[in-house]
């Protein structure tokens, strides 16, 4: 930049005022984006509106119309008394099951994968890159190829049907992407840091816990976001490796909504659907850019 000819206090936008009229081309861009936004927001709108109506109003009216009479009864029913088979204690059970699954899965999978990434960058050993390559290829193997042998392994370990079995499965299948995430992050840190800690006599764990972890908070946040949403949204592993008592929320939701018995209560169904989507949705909205960074990191291979 050339030296400013004006004192700093006066430096605002220089040159002619931008045109205030919007060019037709810009208008078309905004119009297109608005239409797209409506398509994207429509299902959310319908979910919220339906969940706040009573059944008589749903039968008469239009799914897009806001409720004439707002009722929170569907939410209460979905949470505490909706039925799956013989159980009528609502989605709350699935919610707490999902919490019990997600918390240890996130902690363990990230702990394991971050150490993997660290070892891959700073403590390379013979074959480490080979294992990493296999790991990355593994991310693309359809789960269907591995689900049955894993049933056998979990049965042998006595973990089949338990929450811990599912935690193990999530740790395994989350490993490629999370390891990649950490490997790339640690590789971007200056090597001198590691060398200096080495000279000071720190060992494998010392360097990791005292030097790297404290300065890796952003990447840990990204990993947590990625894992919470991914594991919360899982259906396939939940339905295979747990039993009805420990079903995660997504499985229970599907059982409630797609059950054939009984009169369909669409408002309760939509409240239940919204409840299940609420956790990942709030994480997404709160984390904003970090979520995007997480999926971008997953997309751009190292």
């Amino acid at each position: 930049m050339i030296d400013a000819p004006f004192p700093r206090t006066l430096s605002g936008p220089a040159g002619s005022r931008p045109r205030t009229r919007i060019a037709p081309k810009r208008l078309m861009i905004y119009a297109a984006l608005l239409i797209v936004s409506v398509y994207y927001l429509l299902p959310l709108w319908v979910m919220v509106m339906t969940s706040l109506k009573g059944m008589p109003e749903i039968r008469m009216g239009n799914i897009f119309a806001p409720p004439v009479e707002i009722t929170f009864e569907p939410w209460v029913k979905a949470w505490s008394s909706a039925c799956t088979g013989l159980n009528c204690d609502g989605l709350s059970r699935g919610f707490w099951n999902s919490v019990m699954i997600v918390v240890p899965s996130v902690v363990i999978s990230i702990a394991v994968a971050s150490v993997n990434g660290y070892a891959l960058v700073n403590w390379k050993f013979r074959g480490s890159e080979v294992f990493f390559t296999i790991l990355l290829f593994g991310a693309f193997i359809p789960y269907q190829v591995m689900i049955y042998p894993l049933v056998i392994i979990l049965r042998e370990l006595g973990l089949m049907g338990s929450v811990w079995g599912l935690v193990l499965v999530h740790t395994i299948f989350g490993m490629p992407i999370i390891t990649l995430l950490f490997r790339n992050y640690f590789a971007s840190l200056p090597e001198e840091l590691f060398k200096a800690a080495r000279v000071d006599g720190a060992g494998f764990w010392g360097i990791f816990l005292r030097v790297l972890v404290p300065m890796s908070l952003p990447i840990f946040t990204v990993a947590v976001i990625l894992q919470i949403t991914g594991i919360w949204n899982d259906f396939l592993f939940g339905v295979i490796y747990t039993k009805p008592d420990t079903y995660p929320m997504t499985v229970q939701l599907n059982n409630i909504v797609n059950s054939v018995q009984g009169v369909k209560e669409y408002n309760v169904n939509m409240a239940a659907t919204l409840l299940t989507g609420l956790v990942p949705l709030s994480i997404y909205l709160i984390s904003g850019k970090l979520f995007v960074r997480g999926i971008a990191a997953g997309a751009v291979k190292g």
Binding site: T250, G277, P280, L281
Partner: peptide, 9 residues
């Protein structure tokens, strides 16, 4: 945002 949701939802 839909990408953050479960396929079930």
């Amino acid at each position: 945002y839909p990408y953050a949701l479960s396929f079930i939802v």
